[in-house]
Design a protein around this nucleic acid. Structure first.
Lengths: 196, 196
DNA sequence: GAAAAGATTGAACAATCGGTCTAAGTTAAG
DNA sequence: CTTAACTTAGACCGATTGTTCAATCTTTTC
């Protein structure tokens, strides 16, 4: 079997810690020294385990995206009214990003941070954003089938608007010092969804 | 009077060039070497004229914000229906950020780029965002007075939603390779504004 | 105990960062 | 022409970037 000592750190925990750093500061501004400090491992261990900074970031991004998409699905697939669940989700988004020290969505922050012509990263980002859009769409389709939103509404386009709006909310939450802006935006969105 | 040779470059043009670099890459990723190359001046001239990188950024940000807020006002204050003007603005936003090579909104990009605890920068950002919100609000108030949107609507909150949505649109435009997402989002927004 | 395999530490790498400063060049006033 | 004021290009600074690597340590197998 394996020879030599076991790893002195948990790969998953280290990855989660790395994710926090990339989340808070974005790819470029997340320095190796801060990553290492937060992950609690040495340089060589990082490179042996995760490759390099870029592939560590990709793994952390995957960890993040899978996590929030799972949470979204859980929230929106809850029993009861699809529209009610959607409203609840929007309120949750508002609450999370209104908290002081909130650092936005890791996807959005790094869309801004990465060079726009980095196609490899852009493709990964697009994939995750598309998943979010799809989750919104599926919920809106069910809401429409249940008669909760207008039969004339276009669920796919509505989902795209929700995607843009939530990304904007997460972004603005990074800089706003009170929650009136985010609260108002979500209130307006909910009231528009109710208008049939 | 003044002695010695005149400046060999135009301060305003150099500032506009600096703005382009900060716009495309964000504060951190905009290196001095690229700034100097694009501005076409020497290091010493930059530091003598603009102070340092940070104050150059603040001047460039001011230049950008004043410019887009002026454009917004022009578009929304045009003759005719306030709601019609607003729809036109949203379509313009979509078109701009759908173009290949689009690098988003300089405000949004740098909200993501800057450390969240940099209060000085955050305050400047908040000021500009608030101005955008106010322009949206004023237009919606006029649209409401003209009976173009529901008398029950809350113009301030609607403006906050439009602020978040447009920031999200600008952000996603950086990474999207086709315009279906942005087109759908704006279409949904316009159709929601029409729902009374 | 010897040897092999894996993990860790920390020194060193070249490159680049933002920023400073000296030396040279240019122009206007006296 | 001299001199003072101003601009410019570019060498230079220490610090930090991401990355590599040799040496050391620890544990398991034979």
């Amino acid at each position: 079997m394996t020879r030599g000592p076991e790893k002195q750190f948990d790969t998953e925990i280290a990855l989660a810690k790395a994710m926090e750093v990339f989340w808070a500061h974005g790819y470029e501004a997340a320095s190796l020294s801060e990553l290492l400090k937060n992950m609690g491992i040495g340089k060589k261990s990082l490179y042996d385990t995760f490759g390099n900074k870029r592939s560590l970031f990709l793994k952390a991004l995957e960890h993040y995206a899978n996590s929030i998409i799972r949470d979204m699905r859980n929230c929106l697939a809850a029993a009861g009214s699809p529209l009610g669940n959607l409203k609840q989700l929007l309120r949750n988004v508002q609450k999370i990003h209104s908290q002081p020290g909130s650092c936005g969505c890791m996807l959005g922050t790094n869309i801004a941070d990465f060079n726009t012509d980095d196609e490899a990263i852009a493709n990964v980002m697009r994939g995750y954003l598309r998943q979010v859009e799809d989750v919104f769409t599926a919920t809106l389709v069910r809401a429409q089938a249940a008669g909760e939103i207008s039969p004339d509404a276009n669920p796919r386009n509505l989902a795209r608007l929700l995607l843009c709006a939530t990304q904007g909310i997460a972004l603005l939450g990074r800089v706003m010092d009170d929650d009136t802006t985010l609260e108002g935006a979500v209130t307006a969105a909910i009231s528009l969804l109710d208008c049939r």
